[in-house]
Amino acid sequence: MKKKLLALGLSALVASTLAAKEIKVGVLQPLTGPIASFGQKTLDGIKLVHEKYNTLPNGDKIVLVVVDGQFDKVQTVNGYKRLVSGEKVVAVEGPLASSMSLSIKRFAGATKTPTVTQIATNPRVTKGSKYITRACFTDDFQGTVAAKYALKHNLKTAVIVFDMKQDYSVGLAKAFEKAYKKDGGKVLKKLFINSGDKDFNAQVAQIKKLNPDFIYTPIYAPEEGLLVRQLRAAGVNSPVMGGDGIADPALLKKLAGKAANGVMYTDHFDPAKAPTPLSKEFIKDFKAKYGRSPSAFAATGADGYLLIYNAIKQCDTKANKTNLQFKQCINDALRHTKNLEAVTGYLTIDPKTGNPINKPAVVEEIVDGKVVFKELIKP
């Protein structure tokens, strides 16, 4: 009798295993190229939460299909097409940067693929799109945070340095300028650079002549480090603040040396200020696995995956027989996410815009290559 029961048990287990499906989720991040460290940190966060949250209540398994977008529009679009058409993923997390997210926007709509960008902050990324959802705040808010911080500290004149090639940089510069002027600040000059530039002597000379109270630099870390180094070498000591695109203290210290000290930036998360129980657990597990505290990229990467996992859990594979039906269900669930416990806080998505509601920002400062929390600013 025992043998018969054991055999029946094993048969049931085998049948259950055979019935379980693999559900593919694409991960499209810049794992090589100028902002590879951002992509790697994001992937670390995604993989960590995937280890815990990969099985659905019906036994189906979520597997990740990772593609390197290389921070290149052609490679990003090709990678997205490969994931959707070749790998038949049901959702994609990424791309990371605003310009890359904008490059795949049309394809997300055409293929009706639910896409979550965890940290692309340009407002145009989700505007008019039913299939791109965002896990982070937008530049409208991030730029306002920087402007309010500057004026709160009596920094009434500013120079803006932005990257003409990056939608993220252009959008954030506009948002800062609008908020800064509205509240009484004066923008003395807007100076532009291009991705990959290494010589900023012309911009530095103009900034030194203008002697602003504040320098706003919504650019990426590779250019930021060199710009700051050249500013300080020229004797320009005005406070410098960037956006989340420079949230790489190690790279800034490598490029700028001691000149990186005092550089500030707005960001999505600080591990010293864990906002949820899940966040505390994530920080503990991340330190144990990687031997360091999680960055905002890791935290928002985790949030993006948790949004997708939560949405997939709500969709029955039997009721949604085709891949397209299943994707539509996932997208609807994503857009109606309410009070989901995540790493950066509790996420509620506005179904009309695809953006999270009331996401706060933190202001960080780099001190000796480490990040020091300064302020939490809510919408």
Score class of each variant (00 low, 15 high):
residue 336 H to T: 14
residue 325 Q to C: 03
residue 334 L to Y: 13
residue 304 G to Q: 07
residue 341 E to Q: 12
residue 322 T to E: 01
residue 288 A to K: 15
residue 300 T to L: 15
residue 308 I to D: 02
residue 324 L to K: 10
residue 338 K to H: 09
residue 319 A to H: 03
residue 316 D to E: 11
residue 331 N to H: 01
residue 341 E to C: 03
residue 305 Y to I: 01
residue 318 K to N: 10
residue 297 F to I: 07
residue 312 I to M: 02
residue 331 N to K: 00
residue 313 K to W: 09
residue 314 Q to R: 15
residue 341 E to I: 00
residue 336 H to L: 00
residue 308 I to S: 04
residue 335 R to K: 13
residue 321 K to I: 07
residue 334 L to F: 12
residue 309 Y to E: 11
residue 308 I to E: 02
residue 293 S to M: 14
residue 292 R to M: 14
residue 321 K to H: 08
residue 336 H to S: 09
residue 323 N to Y: 05
residue 325 Q to A: 13
residue 334 L to E: 09
residue 316 D to I: 09
residue 331 N to F: 02
residue 293 S to R: 00
residue 314 Q to I: 07
residue 308 I to H: 05
residue 292 R to L: 12
residue 294 P to T: 03
residue 314 Q to G: 14
residue 300 T to M: 15
residue 303 D to K: 06
residue 341 E to W: 10
residue 326 F to R: 11
residue 340 L to C: 06
residue 298 A to C: 08
residue 291 G to R: 11
residue 334 L to W: 14
residue 301 G to T: 04
residue 334 L to A: 08
residue 311 A to V: 12
residue 334 L to S: 04
residue 338 K to Y: 09
residue 290 Y to E: 11
residue 318 K to G: 00
residue 295 S to T: 15
residue 297 F to K: 12
residue 323 N to P: 05
residue 340 L to R: 06
residue 306 L to D: 03
residue 329 C to W: 06
residue 295 S to A: 11
residue 319 A to G: 07
residue 308 I to F: 05
residue 336 H to D: 00
residue 326 F to P: 07
residue 314 Q to P: 10
residue 333 A to F: 11
residue 323 N to H: 13
residue 300 T to E: 15
residue 305 Y to L: 07
residue 330 I to S: 06
residue 288 A to F: 02
residue 334 L to P: 14
residue 300 T to P: 02
residue 327 K to V: 01
residue 326 F to W: 05
residue 333 A to L: 04
residue 327 K to I: 00
residue 293 S to Q: 06
residue 301 G to A: 08
residue 336 H to W: 13
residue 335 R to H: 12
residue 290 Y to M: 14
